[in-house]
Design a protein around this nucleic acid. Structure first.
Length: 421
DNA sequence: CTATAACTCTCAA
DNA sequence: CTAACGTTGAGAGTTATAG
């Protein structure tokens, strides 16, 4: 197997730069929902030592000193740019797995007659020119190695300029390269595993590649065994071109300010259900259980803490927003305790199955709202989500997340298109 | 006791 | 002046529970 992993460089920042060239060459961060933490950092910001996931308030001083520009995340924009990027990349191979918003695997079996390094450069060049996004390309025999190759391409290891093809290296060259890469860079090795492996003296990729997979499987897990195999060029993961339906659908959000009363919590939960149920219907599923949870701010150690979730089983699986909302609100009422500063609420739709199967409950009293839902989805699809909503969702939404530095919907909203005058 | 369900932990982007 | 810290999803492994 030969495959490429193509990954956008600090993707969200790059998307913003396409439409606002003034951001070019400047330190830029894109913040998570609620303007909380850094989720994308330009090279200039990384150079200043800002870590991934660092809270914005903690870097305020640094930001002021170095003129760091912060933007709220604009997912509508990033999703649209992602689609364009994926479309261009699909021209380079019919076998594409869209792995996340900013990266995809491309199957390259049957392309080996080409100079794959040149091919990788062609990908970079075309995505840059047609979409405006800079990407790096890693090429290797397994997904894990392709990820690693991509890392090398990004870091400019061994003089790579945005493209790294491990298949063209001798084993000696690989060993030298891998000896200089920490295990934390390996796909599937997170902070916990890193700590434990380092404790055993396994610190770099070369060391892990040469360690005994069977022993480590016994001590850790089958996941690590597979990772080791993949590092040695033995594929354990296939290219997955068809995206399977979700097994669970979640929707949760932190509030822009603390919430104390039941009423606003109910509104928020109703909104989250509406979002989740819309996704549920779009993949043609029904949910058998609804989970709802609330929590206070765990970072605020001196405040009274409360965190609880409840799973509400439905007598009959459903995709009806109104029914799912009732179930969630029933659960919320059970959970709610007055006297706490709630920071976040969320819902999950669980036990998903395919819709359209005949309803088996003879004694069902549930009203069939499927046509109402279809109309709602059509209207909201045309005019934007939230155009038509249930009364339970409310209208004021004082609790709504902060999004103070958001850029215009350049590619998705006519009314936000900046006009050249 | 076994088979499942439910829950916890880890990882990823 | 203070307080201000994401979201969504999967899979493996473990524990609780039902029969």
């Amino acid at each position: 197997m030969t495959l490429a992993l193509v990954d956008g460089n600090n993707f969200y920042v790059s998307c913003e730069r396409v439409f606002n060239p003034k951001l070019e060459g400047k330190p830029v961060v894109v913040l998570s929902n609620n303007d909380g933490c850094a989720v994308a950092r330009s090279a200039e910001v990384k150079a200043l030592g800002v870590k991934m996931g660092e809270p914005w308030f903690k870097m305020r001083d640094l930001a002021k000193k170095h003129g760091i520009l912060a933007l709220s995340s604009n997912y509508a924009l990033y999703a649209d740019m992602s689609n364009r990027m994926m479309t261009v990349l699909r021209q380079f191979s019919p076998d594409q797995e869209v792995y996340s918003i900013d990266e995809c695997f491309l199957g390259l079996d049957g392309f080996q007659h080409l100079d794959l390094i040149e091919y990788g450069h062609a990908m970079r060049q075309r995505v840059r020119q047609w979409v405006g996004i800079p990407v790096c390309v890693g090429i290797a025999e397994t997904k894990t190695l392709a990820k690693l190759a991509n890392h090398c391409a990004k870091k400019n290891h061994a003089g790579k300029e945005g493209v790294c093809d491990l298949t063209r290296m001798t084993d000696t060259e690989r060993s030298a390269l891998f000896s200089n890469i920490g295990i934390r860079e390996i796909w599937g090795v997170g902070p916990r595993l890193t700590e434990q492996l380092v404790g055993r003296g396994i610190t770099n990729v070369e060391a892990l590649r040469n360690s005994d997979a069977k022993t480590l499987r016994r001590e850790f897990s089958v996941v690590l065994e597979r990772t080791i195999a993949e590092l040695n060029g033995i594929p354990c993961m296939d290219l997955e071109e068809v995206v399977p339906n979700k097994q669970q659908i979640m929707s949760s959000r932190s509030f822009g300010q603390y919430v104390y009363d039941l009423a606003p919590l109910q509104e928020a939960v109703a909104c989250y259900i509406a979002i989740a149920a819309e996704k549920l219907r779009s993949q043609g599923s029904v949910a058998g259980m609804v989970q709802v949870y609330v929590r206070t701010n765990p970072h605020k150690a001196d405040a009274p803490q409360y965190q609880r979730g409840l799973t509400v089983p439905l007598t009959e699986a459903s995709d009806d927003t109104l029914l799912l909302t009732r179930a969630a609100l029933w659960g919320l009422k059970k959970l709610y305790r007055p006297g706490y500063a709630y920071q976040k609420a969320g819902v999950a739709l669980l036990n998903l199955s395919a819709a359209g199967a005949p309803q088996m409950d003879l004694f069902s009293t549930a009203k069939d709202n499927s046509r109402v839902m279809a109309v709602m989805d059509r209207i909201n699809g045309m005019w934007g989500r939230g155009t038509l909503h249930s009364a339970a969702e409310g209208v004021r939404h004082d609790w709504h997340m902060k999004r103070e530095k958001v850029s215009p919907g350049y590619t998705t909203r006519w009314d936000q298109l900046p006009l050249v005058t």
